[in-house]
Design a protein around this nucleic acid. Sequence first.
DNA 1: ATTTATCCTATTCTTTTTGTAGGATACAAA
DNA 2: TTTGTATCCTACAAAAAGAATAGGATAAAT
Lengths: 148, 148
Amino acid sequence: MKVNTKTRYGIRTIMELAFNKSEKDIFQKDISLNQEISYKYLDQIITGLKSAGLVANVSGKKSGYRLTREPERITAYDIHSAFNSRLSVVDCLLPQSTCSREGKCAVRNLWQGLNMVITDYLKSITINDLVRDQFELDTKQEELIFHI
Amino acid sequence: MKVNTKTRYGIRTIMELAFNKSEKDIFQKDISLNQEISYKYLDQIITGLKSAGLVANVSGKKSGYRLTREPERITAYDIHSAFNSRLSVVDCLLPQSTCSREGKCAVRNLWQGLNMVITDYLKSITINDLVRDQFELDTKQEELIFHI
DNA sequence: ATTTATCCTATTCTTTTTGTAGGATACAAA
DNA sequence: TTTGTATCCTACAAAAAGAATAGGATAAAT
């Protein structure tokens, strides 16, 4: 029951872009540095986010990434979906599965329900929520430093 | 985000025992046959359930297993706990973790919240719920067969 | 003593996860 | 038109986790 690193790094990448209020788009290099994610691994993270239509860029020398829509309209579920074909805590609930117990197994309901609460929760949290939380945390940190 | 087989088989094992209304306890051999779980692998499942105090038996030749309490008072979370030291979708929330971002990372809240909804859901489902569902499914199956 | 059933631990096999490597492509600026 | 910088693409490898097997030890009823 672990969330994989691609999803976790993906969220931090999106947050990094959401934080950017300047005109200029953000280089992969800078995301890598700020978020402490290996530059090369970030390649794959960004590919996923692009395929999911969450980030965009122009190609060539003067590139850099930006969000394709407001942080309010990107949920944790969107990012999870970018890296996980379907959210399911068990394989027997996936469409391609051929479980011999299908139709006569009550435990399926349990996992179906668990899929539901996880999905609902992830859909309920937006990047904006996270950025707001992060801003508050940063402010507290600054106050702490100020008082020293 | 997968539930491991030990937890899944553990639930089915507990259900098998909950179904038993007879005086006699149930042999591992029979659980293995009925639930289609390898006899040897079931060793480990049962060990976990015993350590968690969910099942009990007498030792020796005339053994077999039984539940230690009513199915109403065993939750899916109890069984999950028997096979997973702590429920956490990320390692950085575990007590032994030393994450460099601790205290300044807003994403932690997201995972903390996800841990919560998963835990609450698993605690809300009892073995009795599952057994009831299973009984209904079985009845429907019988009706189906009857009508053929 | 024998049989049957649980108990215990080590090992192996498989899959998934995580990350690295190396070059190809695009385009702006010199 | 060459050079430099940044993204793009795919293969591969290392590491970790998950799933299952194997082989014998122990306990007690017959």
